[in-house]
Design a protein around this nucleic acid. Sequence first.
DNA 1: TCTGGGGTCCTAGGACCC
DNA 2: TCTGGGGTCCTAGGACCC
Length: 436
Amino acid sequence: MHFPGPFALIDANNFYVSCERVFRPALEGRPVIVLSNNDGCAIARSNEAKALGIKMGHPWFQVRQAWPDAGITALSANFALYGDMSSRLMGVAAGLGPEQEVYSIDETFIGLAGIPGDLARRSHAVRSRILQWTGLPTCVGIGPTKTLAKLANHIAKSAERKPGSYPAELAQVCNLAILPASELDAIMAATEVSEVWGIGPRIAGQLRMLNVRTVRDAASLDPATVRRRWSVTLERTIRELQGQPCIGLEQQPSAKQQIACTRSFGQPVDSLEPMVQAVSEFAARAGEKLRAQGGRTGQMLVFAHTSPFQPGKSYSKSITLALRRPSSNTLDLVATAARGMRAIFKPGIQFMKAGVMLLDLAPEGQEQEELPLDNEGEASERLMSVLDAINDRYGQGAIRVASAGTQVKKREWEMRQQLRTPRYTTRWDELPVART
DNA sequence: TCTGGGGTCCTAGGACCC
DNA sequence: TCTGGGGTCCTAGGACCC
C-alpha cells in the first residue's frame, strides 16, 4: 500500500451544473438542475437549487409541480460533455503534486509528499488555474489521510456556501494538517458523523444510538471495538480520522471486475423484438468498455423488470449465461444477450428496464486457448479494433449491430432526453458559435 | 404521464475436502 | 453426557461510494 501523504482532494462544485454553465454563462446565479437518464430525477443541483430545497434524486415531475414559478432550468445529462470537461480538469489538477488518483468524474486525490512550502497557498493557485483554464469552480481539502482530506474538502465547501458554518479562511481551501489541535477538535465537534467518507446513513444511525454524533465522537472510538462490532472497513475509517493512513493512493485504475450496461426505457415495452434490440445495444456498449480495458468475459447476466413505481403486478427475471469460450467480440456478446432475453421474456408484461452485466472477467491471454482450426480469432480481433476505431472517430453508434435497431426500425425503448445541451467539445457539428 | 446508472468491498453461511 | 479440527470456495446480502 502506498501512502504518499499528506493528501489533497480536489472536487468540483456542483460539477454537471458547472459544466453546463461554462457554455451558458446566463445560468450563473440561477437555480439549475441536471437530470438523470430518461430525464428522471435531479442528480446535480446549483447552490440556488439546493437553497430552494431540491434534494438529490428528487423526481423532476415533482420538482416541476412543487416550484412552478421558481425559474428552474432543468437539463438532460450530457455525459459526453462532462467526460471531456473531466479530463481537462484532471489534467490541470495534476499540477498540485507528484502523484494523482482520479477518484471519480469530478474528484481527484493528489499525493503531496515532498512538496515544500505553504500547501494552502499552492492549492489556491492551482484552484485559480483550474477556474481560468477550464471554467470549473473547485474546492481543495488537505489532510494527513484520505479520509481527513475528504473531510477538509467538505469543510472548504461548506465554509464557502454557508458563511458562518466554519471559519471563513477555510473557504475554498482547507488544510487540516496544519491546524492547531484545539481548532481541529472544535471543527470535528461541529461536524456531523454522517459527513465522513465511508459512513453512510445506516451506520450513522447505529452510531447515533450509541451517542456518537460528531466526527470528534467517532474519532475517539476504539478501533478494535469498531472492528468487532462492525467491520474492518469501518475500523480503517476510524483510524484515518485519528490520523493514521490506512487507505492508499491508487495511481493506476485497476481493471474492473464486472461491467454493466443497464437502462430504464423511455416508455413501457411489452414485445420481444424491442427487448432484444435493447439488450443487443447494451451488450455492444459493454463490449466496448471490456475491450477498452483489454479483457474478456466468460459469463453474462441478462435481466429485465417492470417499473417498481407502478402499481399492479410486478415481474423481474434474470439469467446467467456462459459464453462458449471467453470473448470480447461484440457479435458473440450480442448473440448471447439476445439468447438470454428470449429466455426471460414473458408476453403481457410492461417492461420498464433491462440490462446486461459482464461477469467473470479476465485479461486477454489468460484463458485457455482452443486449437486454432482457422484464423477466426485473429480476424475477430481485427474486426473489433476497426469497429472501435471508426466509432471513436465518427461518434458512438456510427457502426452498430443491426439487431440493436436502426433508424428505419424504430427504437421504442430508447430513453428520453429532451433537454440536452450540445456536445460542445466533442462533436464538430455542435461546436459553440461565437459569431455568425 | 413522469422516479438513474455503475461500481467496490466485506461478512456470513453453506458445501465440500482431508 | 457425549458429537474434531481445519481449510477453501462460492454465493447472497448488506453497506458504501459517486
